[in-house]
Every structure is written in structure tokens, then in C-alpha cells.
Design a protein around this nucleic acid. Structure first.
Lengths: 155, 155
DNA sequence: CTAAGATAGACAACGTCGTTGTCGTTAATA
DNA sequence: TATTAACGACAACGACGTTGTCTATCTTAG
């Protein structure tokens, strides 16, 4: 089909869509009192979850080394989004938990993403958006998010 | 609509789709004799184009500093994908041009992307893929690609 | 025509990121 | 009880993009 768009447009549009959503999310988060949140933070906070986790487990979940996970946790701790406490059952472990601020940014993110999705639905239609999501589900792995984006893209 | 998927799935799927395509591209590029090509290289080579460019212009095109563009050019030069020559009209300028190897990786990328697009079409259907692309075009800016991905995501 | 300003590219320093390697401490297992 | 495994902390490394500075060169105003 010579009328098909060139294949390189597809990845470009996918990334641009991702970037637009993330940028608008963080613009709105900044307005709502979270000006220091970064794109990766949301994914990390989501991966930590309500029950908490450890640096090693977080690294495994996100596909990076435990050291990298530890540094990310430190950064989130400085921002007040997580806190660490020793595990009484295993003195080696330090449980990382969301603070109220961390829970707040996660809740706001969910609400803002829903609103952004609504905006897309207003542009392309509810049904088409649902189809778009369903189609993407068919061609993407069920894998969780990998956090090695910087090195993956550039190195 | 409480039956809608949570809004955070959309950006996730978009990024996963991007990542899958890019990873498969580079797996195939590696098989075809370009094992050192990185995701960003394709975008940079594309931005350089057939006519060539300079570090300053490339930086402007990709939304990064001229120094960052210069470092990327150095890396591509080491890989043999571009070469630099002084501009006889303006001795300050150094024109960056694609080498045959750089042109080759670009041509192969185009072919591989087309093939990957065909694979997606086989899964979700030709029409649905065309709709997906058309819909994404409506919600994404016509902007060119910005190369500050590492810092944008993580910093 | 000359002098002031702007531009291109190179060099260095800095902070962030993920990586590997190492170490001391603590838990699990033989 | 002794060995192995796991957790977290520390340091060093290269990659990346950033700002700042410097020289060389082109452009433009007087």
C-alpha cells in the first residue's frame, strides 16, 4: 500500500502522545502544589504502592539496579513523597512508604489523567479513544514500566 | 463513565508502544550490521538530513544546547555515521553530513519501521491502524522531536 | 574602511542518572 | 554452629545535558 504513511510516523506519534500527556500532567500538578514532581516520580510512587516496598524489590519491579532504585528513593525522600523505616521483622530491610504528600500526588495524578483522557475523547470521540486503547493493548506487552529510560534512549 | 479505563493507562500504553517499536527496530538493525545504533541516533540522523547541518542548527532543531548537539555529533562521528567538513563560505561553520553508513542505517530504519507497521496492521487491522494514526495526529502537536528525553524524564 | 557586535565551535566544570564493585550487617540454611 | 545469601550503604565510573568561557570569524553600523 503506497498510500500508507511512512512507518516512522507511528513511533513518533506514540511518543509525542506520551510526552504531551505527561507534560500536561506535570503542568497541572505544579499548579496544584507539586511543582517538583518529575515524570519518573509518578511511575515510581505507583510502583511503591500503598503497602510499601524495599530498594531491592523496587529495583526489580522497575528493571534497574538496587543502587539506582536507592538513589531514586533518596530523591523522593528529599521531596517528602516517601519515608523509610526499618523493618522490625528483618533488621536489614528498610520499608519505603508513601507519605501523605506522596499519596496526594498519586491521587491528583489519577484525577488529572482522567481529565486529560476526557479531553482526548472530546477531540477524537469516546469510541475511537476506547478502540485506540484496545488496539494498543494488543500490540504492547503486559510488562510493567521499565525505569531505565534515560540510558535506554541515549546511551 | 465509570467503565472507562483509568486515565493513567493511556500514557503507559503509548510509551510501551513506542518502546516496543524502537526495541524491535534496533534488534533488527543489529542483525543487519548496525549493532551500535541507539534509539536517539535515528532521530538525530533524520534531523541532519541529506543536506547536512551544523551543531548550532541541530541543537535548535532538537531542542537542546549546541554543546549537547556537538557531543552527539561526536558520538555519531566515532560510529562512522556522520562526517564533518569546514564550510568554505563561512570558515567558522562545520557542516555535518551523513556518511554512506549513516544513509544506510536511515534507509534500513525506514524499511524496518514499515515492516513493523505491517505487523501491527496484521494484528489490529489496516483500518484500525490508520484510525489510530489519524487520531494521534489530532491530539499531538506538529512539533518535531525533542531530544532532551533523558533529562526531561528523570531530572 | 574600520570598529563594535553577533555567531560558530571548542573546552572545561557541574549535577544527574544508572552502572558495577565493594563492604558491613543481618537472616536463612546446611 | 558455620556457611551462604540478602539488604543497604559507599565509592568510582562513563554517559548525558547544562551553563560559562574563550578564540576565531562573519556581519553590520558608523
Amino acid at each position: 500500500m503506497s498510500n500508507d504513511p511512512p512507518g516512522f510516523e507511528l513511533p513518533l506519534r506514540l511518543f509525542l502522545g506520551f510526552r504531551v500527556l505527561i507534560d500536561e500532567l506535570h503542568a497541572e500538578l505544579a499548579r496544584q502544589g507539586h511543582p517538583h514532581a518529575r515524570p519518573m516520580h509518578g511511575f515510581v510512587l505507583q510502583a511503591i504502592g500503598a503497602e510499601g516496598t524495599t530498594a531491592v524489590d523496587l529495583g526489580r519491579t522497575l528493571g534497574v539496579s538496587k543502587q539506582a532504585a536507592g538513589k531514586t528513593i533518596e530523591a523522593l525522600e528529599r521531596l517528602g513523597y516517601v519515608e523509610r523505616a526499618r523493618d522490625p521483622r528483618d533488621t536489614r530491610r528498610k520499608i519505603v512508604r508513601l507519605t501523605p504528600s506522596g499519596t496526594d500526588v498519586l491521587a491528583r495524578s489519577a484525577r488529572i489523567f482522567d481529565e486529560l483522557r476526557g479531553r482526548w475523547a472530546a477531540v477524537i470521540g469516546d469510541e475511537r479513544l476506547a478502540e485506540l486503547e484496545a488496539d494498543l493493548r494488543k500490540v504492547t506487552p503486559p510488562d510493567v514500566f521499565r525505569l531505565d529510560v534515560p540510558g535506554w534512549f541515549g546511551a
